[in-house]
Design a protein around this nucleic acid. Sequence first.
DNA 1: CTGAAAGCGCTAACAG
DNA 2: CTGTTAGCGCTTTCAG
Lengths: 334, 334
Amino acid sequence: MAVTIRDVAKAAGVSASTVSRAFSNSELVDPRTRELVLRAAEQLGYLPNRAARGLITGRTGNLGLIVPDLANPFFPEVVKGIQARAREADYSVFLSDTDEDPSAELGLVKALAKQVDGIILCSPRMSADDMREAADCSTLVVVNRRGSNIPAITIDNVDGMRQAVAHLAALGHRRIGYVAGPRSSWSNRERQRGVRTAVAAEDAELVEIGNVPPQFEGGVAAADLVIAADVTAVIAYNDLIALGLLTRLAARGVDVPGELSVVGIDDIPMSAMFSPALTTVSIPKAQCGRAAVELLLQQLATPGVRASSRREVPAQLLVRDTTAVALPTGRGAH
Amino acid sequence: MAVTIRDVAKAAGVSASTVSRAFSNSELVDPRTRELVLRAAEQLGYLPNRAARGLITGRTGNLGLIVPDLANPFFPEVVKGIQARAREADYSVFLSDTDEDPSAELGLVKALAKQVDGIILCSPRMSADDMREAADCSTLVVVNRRGSNIPAITIDNVDGMRQAVAHLAALGHRRIGYVAGPRSSWSNRERQRGVRTAVAAEDAELVEIGNVPPQFEGGVAAADLVIAADVTAVIAYNDLIALGLLTRLAARGVDVPGELSVVGIDDIPMSAMFSPALTTVSIPKAQCGRAAVELLLQQLATPGVRASSRREVPAQLLVRDTTAVALPTGRGAH
DNA sequence: CTGAAAGCGCTAACAG
DNA sequence: CTGTTAGCGCTTTCAG
């Protein structure tokens, strides 16, 4: 069997409690004894058993993470951020992928609750009621959604949209399209709101298109609608949709950005590799992840939702190749 | 505090052990008593504490997963497969991302070992010595690497390369390039070996280019070498490299597939979205993940490495738009 | 500063 | 079939 605290105690010639103290309340033990213990532990290759510790302290040193779909290129970056920050704080992370099934989320929270100190919910799709129930099971932090009085990390979508629209307006676009994502998505509602405000502020015209699924295919499907909408620029709910748009637009012979400017949101790696490279509103994904862990840690230390339990990270427009000056004469025939 | 086995016992009017049995050795308890217990548990919202159970059984019901880089689009799919299969078997999974740091791998294995029943190592970059040491810490299954006598899931790279080369040869290509990935990568060595064999079998000529990092940028960098190599077709170590190749080739004015055919390996989602869509050797990524869990479960049940502890999954050529008949006259000037 | 004792939530003999 | 007893590895009073 593995080497236990008792083996170390024996080897160091002290009691088990001393070994325990040497590993946690380092101040309560004589530095020389401590050194002795640590050396013995090292020698025997002792590593504390977290499960046993958790049993008594009530803290597991684990943290749960639930994402809708790891295959969506947005999430891996967030997960990496969470991972990295969690490791720094000496936490391990349990990962669960719901495969975009909102009804699986609550069950996973409940299953995880016993094994973790807190759970990070990424872009949860569950109902507000389920959210509340989930919050009763464990300490929660939610990313990319707000409501139910749960500590949250969100993106400043409104400002992101403002930047995108200002950019397009500065290029002379007066009639702008927005391809909407899923109706149930909190982010989509925020982005839609942001676009409306920004377009109004620029005194331009907005054409709303969609909703479409937040996938490449959604963009492909929306492209013909965009062409028919007779706009000179279009903002898509996310990069995947924008890329689908670009692909279908090329097939239809529409020149981007010559005839039509396209802006995405997210800045997934693929966007930079595409040609033309996609102009997009970049989201600091890893930073969202780190911030989520930060919030969770803080929540664990001093529970209670307060102003500081919400954190909004900025979005940043990245101008690449799919946006250009609007043709004064409008687009040609296709 | 949470509801314990004792609370349930009291509520059901039985002893703690009976509750315990009702939840595990369901056959050793009277069906009626069992029903009683389960109902009481349900009522109180009881969920067994896995940590406590693990303490005594020695089995945690957890499994560790270490990947080099979740942002590499190859891994999320594998992770999803692992996740899905693990959940079916009622296992939770600890995820760790090493950020491509080989020296972090062994440490993570050791840290994880105490909390899990077994660990899946995805494409580990560590040395063979470290592998052996890791194997002493925990039950291991490795994906995408072979050696050190550890149960492994691998891809039939050699046959994949055979398919790719046969396809190109059938199209009339006689001089084929291979852009090599990292020298330290087991997969790269396998693929290289496969290409050599296949090209020889087709009586064609092979030009080896690289090694380059397995990233988009690696492909961008390799493109000029490929042009200079004067081949009519090129196979890249992975899709990311192939995509970088495509991008730089377009910038250099080389028509794909008109002047040069390109084949990737992996079939990452991006490959299908690119234009032209990339011909690639597809790897059943989720299936690799599932198979890895399968192997681990089997290993946990009956330890010992034997013939059945290795499983090789097939690769499958996907012909898309980047491969075409070689011009009989060779390529034009660039 | 250190040891002895009790117990976290659960399971595994061992008797009934 | 079921209850009692003894711990799993660790932390934490409580006395020294």
